[in-house]
Simulated assay, not measured.
Amino acid sequence: MKRLVEALSGLVALTGLPYLIYLGVYYLRQPSGTPADTWPEEPSVSIVLPTYNEATIVESKLEELVSLDYPMEKVEIVVVDSSDDGTAELVDTFFAGRLEPSLTLIREDERRGLAMALNEAYAAASNEVVIKTDCDSRLASDAVRKAVANLADPDVAGVTGRNADVIGDSEVEQGYRDIQTMIQVLESHIDSTLIFHGPFSAFEREAIVPIDEDSIADDTELALKIRRNGDRVVFDPDIHYREAAHSAFGKRREQKDRRAMGLLRLLWRQRDALGRHGAYGRVVLPFNWWFMMVSPWLVATGITVATIGSLAVLGPLGLATPAGVLGFTALGSRDALGPLQPFYSLFDTQLSLLRASVSLVRARGDDAESHDGTWEPDRELREVLQ
């Protein structure tokens, strides 16, 4: 029993140490605020919008884009569509008779995956700054202005923003996003951030390079490749967007597990970046490797060791340990943990990363390598946007 206690204590200490170090660095650096200045003149902007069967929400998204606080004569909307529900026709009708912003509509005969669609859209974008957004998200009116202000820095070629208000009131997702904001703000002050967010990412057009055709972490992959090419990519907490998310355990799995799979595969494919590219490869990437690759296994091992120890000492009463974990999960997925809710948000993310890791290990990467980057839209989440 003593050895089990020592093992569990060691696992807890090992798991938590990098996070304590992070908090210490955060306290010492005290990062805050936007890193941006203001451009004296607004650059031209291409807004890329990939769509697939978005007939119920595409018009409201387009209304949002043409209402952004930015000179529309300097804006181009690039829609790349592979729908079979009339989405492209709705886009055409929306822009009929409009002189600005201009529209570039790319109709795909077949659905080939998001990465291939984005590569085509990025190649078609003609303006100085290229912004990618998703149909099932909502942007703050000043998002573009704040993005181009960040890109005014000659060292910065990419910027992403913050999900400041989760549509659907998911406290699980909001708690995780708040923690993620702290991480990404510090990463940006140290060098560059890793994760870029699909609802809003902005890049200098000249810095854009093709992404892997089977990518399922397209925004982050593009940002990582830009950093590898020598430019910084940053997170600005003052750039706000809204994205819908579930809290219920089962409903979160597809959304979270898919993202986890994409990030894990990307880190593995780009593993030679570790230790290179300044503090990005020496600090930012190692921390994310720990959080995504190592920590989920340590958490699972810790729960297993605690369960074995409880059963060894208490017999059947030791089942209280796994029951406690299940209770914690059940309450957390119902947004019912009060001040402990942020801890569940982290646990939920670690679970998705573990599930994705297991899938990769079981298939030796075959499932991930063959993923074509397509999935069905979450109709329930889209209903809250209508």
Rank of each mutant, 00 (worst) to 15 (best):
L317K: 12
I303R: 06
L311I: 15
A312Q: 14
P339T: 06
R334T: 01
P322G: 02
G318Y: 08
L331E: 01
G338T: 02
V305K: 12
T304P: 02
R334S: 05
L311W: 06
R334I: 01
G302H: 09
I308V: 15
L326C: 09
V325M: 01
L326D: 09
I303K: 06
P339F: 09
P322Y: 05
G332T: 02
D335Y: 10
A336F: 05
P339S: 04
V305Q: 10
L314H: 13
S310P: 13
D335S: 13
P342F: 07
A312E: 13
V313P: 05
P316K: 14
G332N: 02
P339I: 07
V313I: 15
I303A: 06
A306S: 12
A320V: 15
G302D: 05
V325H: 02
L311S: 02
I303P: 05
A323P: 06
F328C: 03
L314I: 14
G309V: 11
A330D: 10
T329M: 06
G338I: 06
V325C: 01
L340Y: 03
L326P: 12
A323D: 07
T301F: 01
A330I: 12
Q341L: 03
P342Q: 04
R334G: 02
V313W: 14
L326Q: 13
G302N: 08
I308R: 02
L314R: 14
G324W: 08
T321W: 07
G332A: 01
A330P: 04
A320Q: 09
L319R: 13
R334K: 11
P342W: 08
G318N: 08
A336Q: 13
G338Y: 07
V305D: 06
S333I: 04
T301Y: 01
T321S: 03
L340G: 01
G315H: 14
R334Y: 03
P322V: 07
G309A: 10
L319E: 12
G318L: 07
P322E: 00
R334Q: 13
T321M: 04
I303F: 08
Q341A: 03
S333A: 15
S310G: 15
G332C: 03
P339L: 09
V325F: 04
S310M: 14
T307C: 05
F328P: 00
G318H: 08
G327K: 11
A336E: 12
L314M: 14
G309L: 10
A306L: 13
L337H: 01
P342L: 11
A330E: 11
A336P: 02
A320H: 09
T304L: 05
V325A: 02
G315M: 15
L311V: 15
P322N: 06
L319Q: 11
P342H: 06
L326G: 12
P316R: 15
A320P: 06
L319K: 11
V325R: 00
T301V: 08
G332P: 00
I308G: 00
Q341V: 04
L314T: 11
L331F: 00
R334C: 03
S310L: 15
G318T: 08
G338L: 10
G338S: 07
G315Q: 14
A306W: 07
R334A: 04
T301K: 07
L331T: 00
L314A: 15
T329E: 03
A320I: 15
G332L: 02
L331Y: 00
P342N: 07
T301L: 06
G315R: 13
A336H: 11
L340Q: 03
A306D: 07
